[in-house]
Amino acid sequence: MNSGLVMYEEEFRLIAGICDRLTRDANAKVVFLVDKNGQLISSSGQAQNLDTTSLASLTAGNVAAMGGLAKLIGEKEFPNQFHEGERESLHMSIVGGRVVLVVIFDAKSSLGLVRLRVKKAGEELGKVFDGLAKKQTAPGAASPFAEITDDDIDNLFSE
């Protein structure tokens, strides 16, 4: 079976820092990072009033559907997508083939600026995720579940 994604404190801080900077540099309202399977990794900006779990799941669904369409017309994927709303717009880009960087912005920013800043942030994030992948597959990497017992699992389901 495919191994899951493991996020460590150190990389999480790096990622959060890159997302915060992108929010400022792109004049964005919200930036969030989602893994392609729909798990929210990080969010930055005015995300308090947003249902980020739903956003993450729908982002992944959208990227998966567009990826399916891309393959039908002979493309590998559509690495960047832009959806323009009346007031707010949404830019999605696939980073390192594994995660999706989503930027929500309004008239205070522009598509050009967002694209420019996303490109740089995407490169930085790509490096962090490469490092994370190496760390996860390195021999002797701490196995997060090793010390969990069957009783721990049973306790979760006993009401």
Binding site: G4, L5, M7, F12, Q39, I41
Partner: peptide, 15 residues
């Protein structure tokens, strides 16, 4: 594919 986040201390799984 599970997602284990040490920073927010969460395990996410998909069914």
């Amino acid at each position: 594919m599970s997602f284990i986040n040490y920073s927010s201390r969460e395990i996410n799984c998909k069914i």
